[in-house]
Design a protein around this nucleic acid. Sequence first.
DNA 1: AGATTTATTTTGACTATTCAAAATAGGTCG
DNA 2: CGACCTATTTTGAATAGTCAAAATAAATCT
Lengths: 220, 220
Amino acid sequence: MATSTVENYLKHILLLSEGGEELVPMGALAEALAVVPGTVTTMVKSLADSGHVEHRPRQGVRLSAEGRRVALNVLRKHRLVETFLVNVLKMDWATVHAEAEQLEHAISDEVLDRLDALLGHPTTDPHGDPIPSRQGKIDSQVYATLATCVVEKGLRVVRITEQSAEFLQFADLNGLQPGASLRVTERNLAAGLVSVKKTTGRPLILSLAAAGKILVQPAR
Amino acid sequence: MATSTVENYLKHILLLSEGGEELVPMGALAEALAVVPGTVTTMVKSLADSGHVEHRPRQGVRLSAEGRRVALNVLRKHRLVETFLVNVLKMDWATVHAEAEQLEHAISDEVLDRLDALLGHPTTDPHGDPIPSRQGKIDSQVYATLATCVVEKGLRVVRITEQSAEFLQFADLNGLQPGASLRVTERNLAAGLVSVKKTTGRPLILSLAAAGKILVQPAR
DNA sequence: AGATTTATTTTGACTATTCAAAATAGGTCG
DNA sequence: CGACCTATTTTGAATAGTCAAAATAAATCT
Ligand SMILES: [Mn+2]
Ligand SMILES: [Mn+2]
Ligand SMILES: [Mn+2]
Ligand SMILES: [Mn+2]
């Protein structure tokens, strides 16, 4: 019964609130949804009327328990669909985000369950993004990034937190997929650069901005 | 760029015009789309403005070449999705129609092609409905039905032309799936009944209305 | 404190889609 | 032919979502 517009609003509020507690500023939401701020104000008020969010005028929005439930379900659909598109249909991981953006609103919970089973109940999508469980639990572990981790330690890529096709294409081409092993050889804050050595392939230099999008954990 | 409303209008015009040539009366379209006639008049005029249909006031609508192209693409998506849901996700053929009704508007041509390949380029969906080719060709062969076919000849079910879950459930339960072998043992026009003997299972009696929804061809 | 910048909200308008109800064009039938 | 029936069209109004631009509140900066 939630329209896809409503689902998108709720999903982005969830994504912007790092778990669902903090107030999301209207401007940030407008930016994420690619609409003007006035539109967000209007929609958020109606979302508040329907009990999906709490609106603190001039401060921001926060999901209600019900809003969070809906948002997690949409996010689960999004990420399971991405997994399906990559693992089963063999699509390019750089392009599946746009596809999933539509499909997340079109698949039923029934299809969702069957996809989940077909895929073997995955816990992360092709980008390493955690897939909320059927019950709405989502892994909220905090990871270091290539911009913040310790230098000269063995690391494993766990996640790429960026959905633009260009960046993902670039990451893929340079062996930065979840599971890849590497270490940071040098970090120059002044120059804003991070040097990375992968176990295989040539050394790589990233900007701090790019490095900040690659989440890592200590190699097992 | 066509909205899903537009896609639904075009698809139903195609379905109601037996191939695309005849004029579809506004009332029939309104009924198929479950909207009031006035709404159809309004929408059809805008579809005519965008070049998707030709509107003969007071007579009906007909698809333009472009409208037909769009409609066939949507129909192809619908039927390939149904095939996927049944063959891969093992869903009940009685329920996939409603799912496909949404998904047909959400999958891209890219995903469509990959689904087609995954399924081995099927030419009919689980109900025996022909799947339009990528180039927009669709099998328009005319078949007899259990209400019109010859009596006491070996037959094979080719298609069930009804998408309601109840009817499909009933057909499935009684062994009336595409491919099933049977013959009509008796037809009583006065009583409006058709008696059917399947190769396996007990004899079956259908109303003429129900029998008319089962398309058959002479057993090979 | 007063002025200025910035984020948010308001207002007015527009598109797409729909319905209810009234108006109308075409037949049809006596 | 004229009354009548039926399908279609018109008219007026509603809902969801959006934008542009003006108004306003809050925060920041002399
Ligand atoms: Mn979306
Ligand atoms: Mn992802
Ligand atoms: Mn549809
Ligand atoms: Mn079908």
